[in-house]
Design a binder for these strands. Structure first.
Lengths: 230, 230
DNA sequence: ACCTGAACACCGTTCAAGT
DNA sequence: ACCTGAACACCGTTCAAGT
C-alpha cells in the first residue's frame, strides 16, 4: 500500500506515481470539467499530488500536453463499418456520424484537437478506412476518393467547430440572428431577409442533428453525381 | 506635432493616443507578424508606447481584444456577387472562394476567428447575401437554402482550419502520410492502402487550391441534386 | 532515474492616485 | 475622462540539489 503523504526523491521500482498516460488522463479530466483555460501545469501537478516540475520528466512542455490530449481524443475514435450490407452512402454516413460524436465527446478540447495537424493526420491514417471503403464502392477514381474524403472531413470539422463554440457560449443564437436580419436595411440583403422571414422564428431554431444530416445528404448526393460523371 | 516622449495624465482634447480601433489594429499586426501567443496585454501596450493599464479603458479585458480581432477580420470580408450574369453554381463558388481568401489573410488568427460564435454569426448576417442569392436561384426551398448555406460555410471553415494549421507547422504532411500508410499492417486498412498506393507520392502532394475546388464542385453537385428532388 | 524547492522572467488584472 | 505605477496572484520553465 502506498502512503498518501508527500515523499520526495526517486520512488521504488514499480511505484512510480507518474506516467505520460496518467498525466494526460488527469489533464483531460480538468479540461472536460473546467475548460481549457483551467489546465495549467501547476494545477495539473496539484491534482496528481506532485511537484509541478515532475511533469517535465514525462512531457517536455505544456504544448506537448495539449498535443497529447488531441492524440488521446483521436485514439478513442472508432468508426463503425456496416460494410456491404448497406448502400455505400449509408456506410459513409454511419462513419461520419460516429466521427462527429467522437469529436463532440470533449467539446472543450474541440478547438485544440481540430487545430492539431499531426493528430488529424494520425486519425486519417489509422481510422479513416470506412470512409475510403464506402467511397471506393461508390465507384470513384482514387483521386476522387481522396478528394471526397477530405471534403467530408473538412465539413465535419467545420460543423463540430461551430457546434462546440455555440455550446461554450450561453446566448441563444437563433432568435438573436432573426432579429438582427430583420433589422437590416431592406436593400442591404434582400434575399437573406426574405429567406429568414419565410423560415420564421421556429423554423430558424437550429437543430444541430438535422443540420448535420442535411450536410451529409448534400455531400453524398454530390459524390454520387461525381461518380456518374467519371 | 505630438511629442514622442512619455507623458502622463489625461491628454488634451483630440490628442488621445488610444482608441479601441487603434489598439485592435496594433494587436492584429502583432498576431500577423509573430503569432497569437505573442499577443499579450503588456506587449501590446509597449508597441503603442502606453502603460499596459491604459488598454483597459478601451477594452474590458484580453478576451475582448481577441473577440475584437475576430470582428475585424470578418468586417474586412466582402463577397463579390457576379449576379445573374453567371449560372448560380458559379455565383456560389465565386463567393465561397472570396470567403476562403478573406479568412486566409490572417492565418495566425484563423482558429480564434472560427471559434468566435458571435463573429461568425455577425458575418452570416451581414455578408452572406451572395450565398443566399445563388441558392435561391438554384430553386431550393427556404429551409434547404438555409441548410445548404450552413453546410457550405462549415466546409469552408473546416478547410481553412486545416490549411491554417498546416501552414503553422513546418513538417511536410504528404510524404509523411504516404510512408505511414504503407507501414500499416496490410489487413488493417486495405482500401486506404490501395487508394494511397494508386495515387502515389506525387499524386498525394496535396494542393490546397484544387482540394478546395473539388469540395466546391461536390457541394454544388449535391445542391443541384437537392433542388431537382424537391 | 525520478522527484523536489527555489528562483526567473513573465502573465492578466485591481486599485488608488495623478492630471 | 483618460493614463499611470505599484502591487497581487498567478503563469511556464530552468537549474541545482536531493534520493
Amino acid at each position: 500500500m502506498v502512503s498518501d503523504g508527500k515523499r520526495s526523491g526517486r520512488p521504488r521500482a514499480g511505484e512510480e506515481r507518474l506516467s505520460r498516460e496518467a498525466i494526460l488522463i488527469a489533464a483531460l479530466r480538468i479540461v472536460d470539467d473546467e475548460g481549457i483555460d483551467a489546465l495549467t501545469m501547476r494545477r495539473l501537478a496539484a491534482t496528481l499530488k506532485v511537484n509541478p516540475m515532475s511533469l517535465y520528466h514525462h512531457l517536455p512542455n505544456k504544448a506537448a500536453v495539449l498535443a497529447g490530449l488531441a492524440e488521446l481524443v483521436f485514439a478513442g475514435l472508432e468508426l463503425p463499418d456496416p460494410g456491404d450490407t448497406v448502400p455505400w452512402d449509408d456506410q459513409l454516413k454511419t462513419a461520419a456520424r460516429a466521427y462527429r460524436v467522437g469529436l463532440r465527446r470533449h467539446p472543450n478540447l474541440a478547438l485544440q484537437v481540430l487545430a492539431d495537424t499531426s493528430a488529424v493526420s494520425n486519425v486519417v491514417v489509422v481510422t479513416m478506412e470506412p470512409f475510403y471503403r464506402a467511397l471506393d464502392r461508390a465507384g470513384l477514381t482514387p483521386r476522387k476518393i481522396f478528394e471526397a474524403a477530405n471534403t467530408l472531413i473538412d465539413f465535419i470539422h467545420g460543423f463540430t467547430l461551430g457546434e462546440a463554440s455555440v455550446r461554450a457560449e450561453t446566448f441563444e443564437l437563433a432568435p438573436d440572428l432573426l432579429a438582427r436580419v430583420q433589422a437590416l436595411p431592406s436593400e442591404k440583403a434582400p434575399t437573406l431577409r426574405r429567406i429568414v422571414g419565410e423560415l420564421g422564428a421556429t423554423g430558424l431554431a437550429y437543430d444541430f442533428d438535422s443540420g448535420f444530416e442535411a450536410g451529409l445528404s448534400t455531400l453524398t448526393a454530390g459524390i454520387a453525381a461525381t461518380a456518374r460523371a467519371r
